[in-house]
């Protein structure tokens, strides 16, 4: 019995090590943001900041130095818009795949892997040409549409497997009680699926918020940039300061980390149900 508890202590210790490895860069992100400029380039490196300052956070949030809030608002518009559309279009499509029978349904269900094969970098060249051709270049809408579609297979999959778990008898009973198909959907199916809908929302929000590739080619006016592109510019500007960089990085990560932790217990189940796009 004693041997067993020693083994458990060792395994618990290993868990702590794994968690620390996962969090180490986040730790340095936050502490460097709080270090003075001299402290961030000191050698040997300061594991614990010797002097703490909030100056870098103030600088990053100061519109004269870095238009953080402008970029934040742009990112938010893109991420929120994409996530909201994903929930609406995804719910309709997923309900159709889960509950309604129509010719070609099987084919659509089985072709999600095909969509994975054509996403990200292989869409960049033709999409850029098309987007410029139809005058959507430097328009956030192009970003919304692209993120919406590249996440759509995952959205459909997550939602339809959730809808499929809602018993048909429940819907039948409601229809016998006189509810129409539409009423069944928004009075019964949707309220029951709130965890799945929240997960999809958070997941799509995260993808759109974090997107670097498409934002970097679709947007150009400084006023319209999203946070990842704004951050990149801050880094390549001559007078970058580590503290500012880390403060901005930290603030950029906060919304998605917060959002994900809210729905984490739902999303893992949904993500796991099948292959999901990053």
């Amino acid at each position: 019995m004693r041997k067993r508890s020693v083994k458990n202590v060792l395994l618990d210790l290993l868990v702590v090590v794994v968690v620390c490895m996962a969090l180490l860069p986040f730790y340095f992100m936050l502490t460097t943001a709080l270090k003075t400029s001299a402290g961030s380039v000191a050698y040997p490196p300061q594991i614990f900041p010797e002097e703490i300052t909030l100056q870098h956070f103030k600088d990053v949030l100061n519109p004269d130095i870095f238009p953080f809030w402008r970029y934040f608002w742009n990112s938010f518009q893109v991420a929120f818009g994409t996530a909201a559309l994903a929930v609406i279009i995804g719910s309709m499509g997923a309900y159709s795949l889960a509950k309604l029978d129509f010719p070609g349904r099987k084919l659509i269900q089985e072709s999600s892997l095909v969509v994975y094969m054509f996403s990200g970098i292989v869409l960049v060249v033709p999409l850029f040409k098309i987007i410029s051709g139809i005058g959507l270049y430097d328009n956030k809408l192009s970003l919304v549409i692209t993120c919406l579609v590249t996440t759509l297979p995952a959205t459909l999959f997550m939602l339809s497997s959730y809808f499929a778990s809602i018993p048909v008898s429940l819907e039948e009973a409601a229809m016998i009680d006189g509810l129409s198909r539409f009423q069944v959907i928004y009075k019964i199916v949707m309220p029951l699926s709130i965890p799945a809908i929240m997960s999809v929302f958070a997941y799509v929000f995260m993808i759109a918020w974090n997107d670097f590739l498409f934002s970097s080619i679709f947007l150009s006016t400084p006023d319209k940039l999203t946070l990842p592109i704004g951050l990149r510019q801050l880094f390549s500007s001559k007078d970058y300061v580590w503290g500012r960089m880390m403060a901005a990085s930290f603030l950029t990560a906060i919304p998605v980390v917060f959002m994900f932790s809210m729905v984490e217990k739902f999303i893992t189940g949904g993500l796991v149900a099948g292959g999901v796009k990053e």
Binding site: M29, M246, V257
Partner: peptide, 21 residues
Amino acid sequence: SLVILPYVAPVISLVFVWRYM
């Protein structure tokens, strides 16, 4: 939930801190 964080945070933030480290 903590272990999942690297997967959730924006690549751009993570790249910068790696470059620093």
